[in-house]
């Protein structure tokens, strides 16, 4: 196909971009929110205390893996792990690695942090900061392709957190519902919505099929997950807030700063 090429050079516009709207507001907000979460969750993980206010268990410490946990989730447990300098390694670090990796490799969060932290690009039609760009084609970012494994892991966490939320009905004097019970259920629902609206989930449950009419169950699954997937970014933020606030709530109750109100 011949098309006439006369100019090899791009338009002689010196300004790096011509946007007049506050395009920088979004990346800055993302940096602040994710940054705050990272700071808080790291701090909370280091505490290794005040994560259990019976019958509530903080999602940061579930499942509790150590034998020495305030609330061991399993009949067995790992011995405490000590690392140099830090000393006792809080189980929260082992636990948070799972959902953390899921979020780290999540298609939506990738968009968010590539823009806000990497500045590649900071906003549409605003230039990349990086000169040598290789995208996700080279190590280590090529590992983002393994998002699906972290999703399998995240589903396990949803199962365990659901169990925790069920246990949150079991008060010392029998069945009951407290504000904390609601908090934990809201958190599980947000996390489940985030986990099941995942792009990998949508693919594995049906997206890989080409002739949907021959696979009605997978088609319906894919169709439903697609609807959910459209709200994936919203669920990503909601669940980030819910998980942090659930930990805050249980921590405050456990310290005794606030009292958990019993509803039933």
């Amino acid at each position: 196909m011949s098309s006439r090429v006369i100019g090899q050079s791009r338009p002689a516009i010196t300004a790096s971009h011509l946007r007049t709207d506050p395009w920088w507001a979004l990346p800055i907000t993302v940096v602040i929110v994710i940054g705050s979460f990272l700071v808080y969750s790291t701090w909370a993980a280091f505490q290794n205390a005040h994560y259990f206010a019976p019958p509530y268990l903080s999602p940061f410490y579930s499942p509790c893996l150590y034998r020495s946990c305030l609330h061991p989730s399993f009949a067995f447990g790992l011995p405490d792990i000590h690392v140099p300098i830090i000393g006792l390694l809080s189980p929260a670090f082992l636990i948070l690695a799972g959902p953390g990796l899921f979020r780290l490799t999540c298609y939506y969060y990738r968009k968010a942090y590539y823009r806000s932290f990497w500045l590649a690009p900071p906003a549409c039609a605003v230039p990349d900061v990086k000169r040598n760009y290789t995208g996700e084609a080279k190590f280590p970012l090529i590992l983002q392709a393994f998002h699906r494994y972290t999703w399998y892991l995240a589903v396990l966490f949803i199962v365990m957190l659901t169990w925790d939320a069920i246990l949150a009905f079991r008060f010392p004097n029998g069945f009951g519902i407290g504000v904390g019970t609601l908090v934990m259920w809201i958190n599980v629902i947000c996390l489940a919505a985030y986990t099941f609206s995942c792009h990998s989930c949508r693919h594995v449950c049906g997206g890989y099929v080409n002739a949907f009419s021959k696979t009605p169950v997978r088609y319906r699954a894919w169709h439903f997950l697609t609807r959910l997937n459209e709200r994936h970014p919203m669920f990503a933020w909601l669940s980030l807030f819910s998980v942090a606030l659930t930990d805050v709530y249980i921590r405050l109750v456990s310290i005794g700063i606030i009292r958990d109100l019993r509803i039933i």
């Binding site: 968009k111 990497w118 996700e136 084609a137």
Partner: peptide
Amino acid sequence: GIGLCNITKCCTE
């Protein structure tokens, strides 16, 4: 070269 895409979604925008 799909690996070069870092899904920052400006195309969709």
